[in-house]
Design a protein around this nucleic acid. Structure first.
Lengths: 147, 147
DNA sequence: TGAGTTATTTGGACAATATCCAAGTTACAC
DNA sequence: GTGTAACTTGGATATTGTCCAAATAACTCA
């Protein structure tokens, strides 16, 4: 939190209430969450913010690298409080997102192997069927991101 | 086209007008396009389809592997006619998407390195600044840690 | 070739997600 | 403290994607 405030200032940005509140919410919740889930958490915990402010803060914080955004497909992007760089596995059946640790742990962990420009990040999305869904084969198509 | 019709039938699906039209549109356009861009192209070329049909077709075709969907971030997913499996580079400044060839060329080209379930695909999104934007350097977006 | 069966399309409405903007507020420098 | 730019706020709006039930058309088999 103080740490994040310092990182913001070091980047020439201000340590504002929404930015700190969103950071703290993601840290408290743990795991992967949509902007709306963050918003709901804040409302429930006495720190209501406009939805727009949550979006703004998430954009700033991901640019700063304090939170990580995973683009897991159509629908809402999910965010998480990020200590180290890592990747994600998305279950095709239940939609659950889980972390896949990155061997390198820093960005960029892969290079493009061809000259496209300056690469500063390589995000990997693994897709397939998770353990739970492999066990309970057949049902539960319409899952959600689990808290 | 006929090829695609056969692939559809081989998978127990029907070779319907929307599916073939969407495939043909993507092939004709080349590159990466959103569902709405495909829809617009079809309207302009005398093959109007309802927006919903375009979405439906794109889902089916990506499941079949005839087209490739790239989840490049918030906003619309982009699709392309896909000959071989590959990855994508997204410019942070202009948003342009370009192909990054995959050394393996088949799915999955990476493994998770840990036991998350059954992985059938690994999609890599590279991010950075493309050549064109590096040349016409403007203001550096604030707060990015340089590698 | 033609009729039956069933996957698929269609179109309208809707839900979910994200952005824009202009006025107000606040964090930070001095 | 005070000034000033950065940031927030909230409402409106744009964008993106999904749902549904009736209508259509692709394929099967005689």
């Amino acid at each position: 939190m103080t740490d994040v405030a310092e990182r913001l200032r070091a980047a020439g940005l201000r340590a504002t209430r929404p930015r700190l509140a969103v950071t703290e919410a993601l840290r408290a919740m743990g795991g992967h969450h949509t902007a709306d889930e963050v918003h709901a958490h804040l409302v429930e915990h006495g720190t209501p913010l406009p939805r727009t402010s949550v979006y703004n803060a998430l954009v700033t914080l991901s640019e700063l690298g304090v939170v990580l955004r995973a683009d897991v497909g159509p629908g809402a992007a999910v965010y998480e409080f990020a200590e180290t760089w890592h990747h994600h596995f998305v279950c095709r059946r239940c939609g659950r997102v889980s972390d896949v640790s990155c061997l390198v742990g820093a960005k960029p962990c892969l290079t493009a192997g061809q000259d496209v420009g300056r690469v500063d990040e390589a995000q990997v999305i693994f897709r397939g069927i998770c353990h739970d869904c492999l066990r309970t084969t057949g049902t539960t198509p319409g899952g959600r991101t689990t808290p």
